[in-house]
Amino acid sequence: MLTHDAYQRVIHAYRCDDRRRGERMMRELIDDLTGPGRYKGCRELASLGRVLKRRMRDILALFRHPHSSNGPTEAINGRLETLRGNTMGFANTTSYIQRCLIHSSQLKDILTH
């Protein structure tokens, strides 16, 4: 029940039409999760509260900057993780670079050098 309540509060904050009110709702939730109160009995919510408190500046920035997204960053990170997986086991720098070029569709660069 406690986790459901916290979840619903997050949803309401992000769906709020008034960004200032949404930011205030999120700030209140973070304060509730980290301060003395009814969420202290649940370790998971206490942990969530600590993480939210630590990242509060970033979380609340969404309310001040509408249409913000970390999508492009996540897309690049996904490509890097895939590339890292594809290049595992290459101790030779030349082989590593070639595998990176192949993965990034730059095979022609290998053939022209």
Rank of each mutant, 00 (worst) to 15 (best):
M1V: 07
M1H: 11
L2G: 00
L2E: 06
T3N: 04
H4G: 05
D5W: 11
Y7T: 10
Q8H: 14
R9V: 04
V10W: 05
I11P: 03
H12L: 14
A13S: 05
Y14S: 05
Y14I: 08
R15W: 09
R15I: 03
C16A: 08
C16K: 06
D17F: 11
D18S: 06
R19P: 01
R21Q: 12
R24F: 06
M26N: 00
M26K: 03
L29D: 00
D31H: 07
G35A: 09
P36V: 12
P36Y: 10
G37L: 12
Y39K: 05
G41W: 01
C42H: 11
L45K: 01
L45M: 11
S47L: 09
L48S: 00
G49T: 02
G49L: 03
G49D: 03
G49P: 00
L52K: 00
L52Y: 04
K53T: 06
R54I: 04
M56E: 12
M56P: 00
R57Y: 08
R57V: 04
I59P: 01
L60P: 02
L62Y: 15
L62F: 15
L62M: 10
R64I: 01
H65C: 08
H65T: 12
H67S: 13
H67N: 14
P72L: 10
T73K: 13
E74M: 15
N77A: 14
N77T: 05
N77P: 01
G78K: 11
G78P: 03
G78R: 15
G78D: 13
L80P: 06
E81A: 05
R84A: 06
G85I: 01
T87H: 03
T87L: 02
T87W: 02
T87G: 01
G89A: 05
A91M: 13
N92E: 03
N92H: 07
T94Y: 09
S95H: 15
I97Q: 04
I97L: 09
C100Q: 08
I102K: 11
H103Y: 12
H103E: 12
S104R: 13
S104V: 08
Q106V: 06
K108T: 13
I110A: 13
L111A: 15
